[in-house]
């Protein structure tokens, strides 16, 4: 048994002289739900297409269970794909769509029928066999696309923004359903999305990409709580990112004030960036605050208030809190040591 089912080693990809992927290293464990997350155009689809065999990498090696498969054509890979816009065959019905792969493998009729039934049950669409594809709703098409891929019992399933076309409510439902399906069938899912919330709720591990480079790989908590740089911090959730100086281990200077933190291992007086999540800042009385400032705006967001507070050095903090301050009021800000995340400065 191999430790990794899929490995990318030093994969690069250029279209013409435009480099789209620059040196991707990635190892994926069996049965893992792994998500490629990044803004539009950062190379997520390209990475997926290289794994699926629809695109050849310019440099680097791709391994499937330790075997190099760079030159293996898609139809010989034990990998199936759920395409960005489903790509269901419009000229045949639901049954024939799901049975497509099995018929190619020349499986016996009665077995095909059994397996298709099973799949329809799995995706909650029993009785849809005879329906035409264009008579289905987006969510139903999406589930047929998953069934069509899963029925082949692939070792790895690639999903390219499968929920992108659905409305918010359906999207949430399908997220839960997809996760359930993955756990039930126990295969590796490589999932692509540019929705950070989706990535964080569904994945075992998240890969944050930007401009063809991997920025960070980690489980959702790590990615959220310990972003390695400004890009990841900015992309994942909302945050206050402010310049700082790492005076010494466990002590950081932000906005001319010294704060205790939980990070170490930086050089003395190294210039760094600090991330503080808006929900990690407490509003206190002015004299009790580590920083003091004026409330610039207050917006009620349903559960909490979103406030902008400009400190006396001029930085504007975004704060989420259930306590409300009044606009124009002077308040203090209090930040716990473990709410301060130190990041290497880039560029």
């Amino acid at each position: 048994m191999q430790d990794y089912i899929i490995e990318l080693r030093g994969i690069t990809k250029s279209f013409g002289d435009k480099e789209v992927l620059g040196h991707i290293d990635l190892s994926i464990k069996p049965k893992e739900f792994i998500t490629l997350l990044g803004p539009s155009g950062c190379g997520k689809t390209t990475t997926l297409r290289i794994i699926g065999g629809f695109e050849q990498s310019t440099k680097g090696d791709l391994y499937f269970e330790g075997e190099r498969i760079n030159e293996v054509p898609p139809f010989k890979r034990q990998i199936n794909t759920v395409f960005q816009r489903y790509a269901l065959f419009p000229h045949i019905n639901v049954f024939e769509n799901i049975a497509f792969g099995l018929k190619i493998k020349k499986m016996e009729e009665f077995l095909i029928e059994e397996k298709v039934k099973e799949m329809l049950k799995l995706v909650n669409l029993v009785g849809f066999e005879k329906r035409k594809i264009n008579s289905l709703s987006g969510g139903q098409q999406q589930r047929i696309a998953i069934a069509r891929a899963l029925v082949n019992e692939p070792r790895v399933l690639l999903l390219d923004e499968p929920l992108g076309a659905l409305d918010l409510k359906l999207r949430k439902e399908m997220q839960i359903e997809l996760k359930k399906i993955q756990q039930r069938v126990g295969i590796t899912f490589i999932y692509v999305t540019h929705d950070q919330e989706e990535a964080l709720t569904m994945s075992d591990r998240v890969i944050v990409m930007s401009e063809g480079e991997i920025q960070q790989i980690g489980n959702p908590e790590d990615i959220y709580n310990e972003p390695v740089n400004r890009f990841v911090a900015d992309f994942i959730g909302e945050g206050n990112i402010v310049d700082g100086i790492m005076v010494k281990d466990f002590e950081v200077k932000i906005e001319e004030q010294l704060f205790t933190c939980v990070d170490k291992g930086f050089e003395e007086n190294e210039l760094i960036e600090v991330l503080v999540r808006p929900e990690d800042i407490d509003i206190v009385k002015e004299e009790e605050g580590m920083l003091k400032g004026n409330v610039r705006s207050v917006v009620f967001k349903g559960v909490h208030y979103e406030m902008e507070i400009k400190d006396d050095n001029g930085f504007v903090w975004m704060v989420h809190s259930t306590d409300m301050a009044k606009k124009g009021e002077r308040v203090g800000l209090f930040i716990e040591p473990d709410a301060i995340h130190i990041m290497k400065k880039v560029g």
């Binding site: 629809f54 054509p73 898609p74 139809f75 794909t81 816009r85 790509a87 065959f89 792969g101 190619i104």
Partner: peptide, 17 residues
């Protein structure tokens, strides 16, 4: 739509199929 062709390849179809 070229993704239909790719989907068929993905499901194991040779170019003839």
């Amino acid at each position: 739509d070229n993704s239909l062709v790719e989907a068929a390849q993905d499901l194991g179809a040779t170019s003839g199929e």
